[in-house]
Amino acid sequence: MNKVLLMGQANVGKSVLFNHLAGAAATVSNYPGTTVDFDKGHMMIEGERVEVVDVPGAFSLDPKDRAEEVAVRMLEEEKGATVVCVIDSSKVERGLYLALELIEKGYPVMIDLNMADVAKDVNIKVDTKRLEDILGVPVVTTVATRGEGLKELVSRMKEAKPVETGKIIEKVEAS
């Protein structure tokens, strides 16, 4: 693993996460679309230097605006990268759509259910164990603004691996 892309919808906290991971100072705001270009930084995982890229928010891999175009282009240029799909825990469905697209494209994916505090406020619970079981990729919970869960996120990045979509469908149908 030498490169990690942070992907997800707009305003799920990718840049906050990025700033924590890469010790960087990307601009962070509370409205969708703050990051319209990518930012790059580095972090150390078990003594290994890994590049982290903060990709602009994308709803899907079917680009609708310039920021999404940048996101999709980034992804195509970085075929071997590990993708951390950042999801707003209070809107899991929307994030899962992008996660599935990424899995279908064959990227090693891991899922970060961010904004867990917001989900708690609106009384939404996500069964991360079950989600991990179905998708077959690591799933962690974070509150990036407060720095919670980042250690687990980083330590499990190396477990990210490509998964066959068929396997996921089988799992869902088996239950």
């Binding site: 469905e93 899962l96 009384n123 619970k125 996500v126 989600l131 179905i134 469908i169």
Partner: peptide, 15 residues
Amino acid sequence: LVDRIAKETVEVGAY
């Protein structure tokens, strides 16, 4: 597929 996964894993409590 998203709907079916969400049904399995997401629990929306009284809000």
